[in-house]
Design a protein around this nucleic acid. Structure first.
Length: 273
DNA sequence: CTAAAATCCTGGTGGC
DNA sequence: TGCCACCAGGATTTTA
């Protein structure tokens, strides 16, 4: 299953800016009420109407639409969410649970087979984004900051990298990939890393995310799609994720899959200590 | 405080 | 072939 993570969300945001910035929402149809986390569906529909899209950005795995009325529209795609722009008279999509009408006659459609995705409309963006950890690709995310954060943690590294309050935007794919590149076992306790290992991990996180961004994300089973419907290319460059039993790209040992913190975790038993 | 487990969903998988 | 129990997976909530 595809879980849009930082590189995928960033790629989608880049593709939505052209067609959407300057457009105004003229209405929204909600086919599955649980998708709208905040406010109530009725208030959501009332408040979004007439607001113009001034900008679109990413924070962690959230897409954020900055609206003219001062509200921020947050969309989290979770597992299977997709965004697509279609003509208003195009046939309905099978999983199109939320459809935004635009002032140019087109629609922004939020498709989500598993219905895990969530939408928030808030006046204060900290209501949703306030507890997120640092952005791993930001200039001000430094090795010394990362080292200070990781030294305080006692738990296993894999769940820590997935913790959005610790660091924002990393999901199952890039956690496994970064730990492999760093040569560190996913079950290592964070506070047992040497200074050298912390530096390797810091570099690995940034390198893996940059490479995936250059590849426009990872598409599995067609579930993550770019704004134009195209697929990413990073699935061709994965080192361990979803490669159980296949040879490690570094040493040739069989990649193993275990469960850590309730999540499927892929690693090389020879290269990762 | 941390950690584990339940929760939400449904297409895909594997067993019989 | 058909039926069905079970699984994955992010983030939140609950429980220990």
């Amino acid at each position: 299953m595809p879980m849009p993570e930082l590189p995928e969300v960033e790629t989608i945001v880049n593709g939505l800016r052209g067609p959407l910035i300057g457009r105004t929402f003229t209405g929204v149809c909600v086919g599955w009420e649980n998708i709208v986390a905040r406010p109530t569906v009725l208030e959501f529909q009332r408040r979004i109407r007439g607001q113009q899209i001034l900008g679109i950005r990413r924070r962690g795995k959230y897409l954020i639409f900055d609206l003219s009325g001062g509200d921020s529209l947050f969309i989290h795609l979770k597992m299977t969410g997709q965004l697509t722009i279609r003509p208003g008279d195009a046939p309905p999509d099978k999983y199109g649970h939320t459809v935004f009408d635009l002032d140019d006659g087109r629609q922004l459609r939020f498709l989500d087979m598993r219905k895990f995705g969530r939408i928030y409309l808030v006046a204060d963006e900290n209501e949703v984004a306030g507890s997120l950890g640092p952005e791993p690709l930001a200039d001000d995310f430094t090795l010394s900051q990362f080292a200070a954060l990781i030294g305080k943690r006692k738990g296993a590294l894999k769940p820590l990298l997935l913790n959005q309050q610790f660091i924002a935007g990393i999901g199952n794919i890039y956690a496994d990939e970064a730990l492999f590149v760093a040569g560190i076992h996913p079950q290592r306790k964070a506070n047992t890393l040497t200074g050298e290992e912390i530096a390797w991990l810091y570099q690995a996180i940034r390198q893996v995310l940059h490479q995936a961004l250059a590849d426009e994300g990872t598409t599995f089973d067609g579930a993550y799609r770019k704004a134009d419907g195209g697929e990413g290319g990073h699935q061709e460059n994965l080192r361990v994720f979803r490669r159980k039993g296949q040879p490690c790209p570094r040493c040739g040992s069989a990649i193993e899959r275990i469960v850590v913190g309730g999540r499927g975790t892929h690693f090389c038993p020879h290269c990762q200590k």
